[in-house]
């Protein structure tokens, strides 16, 4: 029996509040990052550039381009948290973001390539 207002275990949510992982930042800076935008580390943090363990994890995982959603799954962090971590890393010049294509809306050539590629599966 569960009583109103009492949450247990998983119900109670994460033990660490999301903003504790983002250095107190509550929203990402700059233009919105899409789930499938590709993140790539471009340089290591300098000595005078302290990183949170989570940001160091992000950096470590994208020596090659990795989409935001895979970073989130890999690090077991909510998407919203990873968005903030990544946009902060971008502002500090440590990662670059490659925007995903809005293929459905504009690019017929990509759509056709998707159809052909799927047929070959």
């Amino acid at each position: 029996m569960q009583y109103e207002g009492e949450w247990f275990d998983g119900e109670a949510g994460p033990v660490v509040r999301p903003y504790a992982l983002t250095g107190g930042l509550t929203r990402p800076s700059g233009e919105r990052l899409d789930l499938i935008d590709m993140v790539r580390a471009v340089r290591m943090a300098g000595q005078n550039m302290p990183l949170s363990p989570e940001q160091a994890d992000v950096l470590q995982r994208c020596p090659i381009p990795v989409p935001l959603v895979e970073l989130a799954a890999d690090l077991h962090l909510p998407i919203g948290v990873v968005r903030i971590l990544v946009s902060d890393l971008r502002d500090r010049g440590l990662v670059t973001i490659h925007r995903s294509k809005s293929a459905g809306l504009s690019d017929l050539k990509i759509l056709q390539e998707v159809v052909d590629g799927l047929r070959r599966l």
Binding site: I36, D37, M38, C62, S100, K101, A103
Partner: peptide, 15 residues
């Protein structure tokens, strides 16, 4: 990573 099958290239894929 998209290239976890060992075909690393400099190309960032269209997603």
């Amino acid at each position: 990573g998209v290239y976890d099958h060992g075909t690393a290239t400099a190309v960032t894929p269209v997603t």
